[in-house]
């Protein structure tokens, strides 16, 4: 069963300065219960794609099914099955966390109890604080809390941890694991590749409106096959050797250098390396 099904999606923006092809024949398939991360440089078509899936934007062409329905014909029944965490918000400043949650809980047929949401997003101690008093990271937790209060089957998270400190991000990741355990499907965009790696079952990389790679984080990393062996030689220079047989490289090195090799490391390519190679180091 698929939660999201996209075939040949296209979207062009028209302005005075001409037409921009934001999405150009994109295919995407996300299974129920899957956590899917969409990566890509700014302007690659990520936001446009997500907003089409969320029902905010009309597409020009292609087929889109989200939870079995065309988002362009979304009704409130469909909307109560999805949760949306938008990119940046500065609203709800005058209401307390608890009041905002209560206001939004009224919109859903089977909302989570407020205490459960406060626990999940770690805002229990801040329930009586107004939105304007929350730090950036706490505000983001409120956004996520509002996104999950209706027990969504599919949750859209658009750069959810921007502005989080490392501890808050860890906390957030464990919350996502909790949602995964409940069977929530999650479509995530992020600029943090370690986040995609930690959370996502599969990663899609989007560039110039097309999906240029689609794999598990591990598979994606594996595409960049060369490992890097580096050490400091006798003259104090760092030497780097890229190889798909790093063990053999080390073997040869130990033969050539009987003593200890200074600062010897073998680095497997990170998802970031793979990603940067893929989008041509053009992370605009």
């Amino acid at each position: 069963m698929s939660a999201v099904e996209v075939i040949g999606l296209t979207k062009t923006y028209h302005s005075k300065s001409g037409a921009t092809q934001a999405v150009d024949g994109l295919d995407l398939h996300i299974d129920v219960g899957e956590i899917f991360a969409l990566l890509g440089p700014n302007g690659a078509g990520k936001s446009t794609t997500i907003e089409i899936l969320e029902g905010y934007r009309q597409r020009d062409g292609g087929e889109v099914r989200v939870l079995g329905l065309d988002p362009q014909r979304a009704d409130s029944g469909w909307r109560s099955r999805i949760g949306i965490v938008l990119q940046s918000t500065k609203d709800l400043t005058e209401l307390t966390v608890a009041e905002s949650l209560a206001t939004f809980a009224a919109l859903y047929p089977d909302p989570r109890p407020m205490s459960e949401v406060l626990d999940l997003v770690g805002l229990g101690e801040h329930a009586d604080q107004r939105g304007s008093q929350l730090s950036g990271g706490l505000r983001r937790r409120l956004d996520v809390g509002l996104g999950i209060i209706g027990r969504p089957e599919l949750l859209f998270l658009d750069e959810p941890t921007t502005g989080f400190d490392p501890e808050a991000r860890r906390h957030f990741w464990s919350m996502i694991d909790g949602l995964r355990a409940e069977g929530t499907t999650i479509l995530l965009t992020t600029h943090y590749l370690d986040e995609a790696e930690a959370l996502a079952d599969r990663v899609g990389v989007i560039s110039n409106g097309k999906l240029i790679a689609l794999d598990t984080p591990r598979g994606l990393r594996g595409r960049q096959t060369l490992a890097r062996v580096s050490y400091r030689d006798a003259s104090g220079q760092i030497v780097e050797i890229e190889s798909d047989t790093p063990t053999q490289v080390v073997r040869d090195l130990t033969k050539a250098h009987p003593g200890e090799l200074a600062e010897l490391t073998i680095t497997r390519p990170s998802l970031e390396d793979a990603y940067l190679a893929m989008i041509g180091n053009d992370d605009g």
Binding site: S80, L86, L107
Partner: peptide
């Protein structure tokens, strides 16, 4: 101001009539 702050967009993403 609420439109600018994103409240209206947020509400449109919910089942709110």
């Amino acid at each position: 101001m609420e439109r600018d702050a994103g409240l209206l967009k947020r509400l449109r993403g919910t089942p709110m009539p």
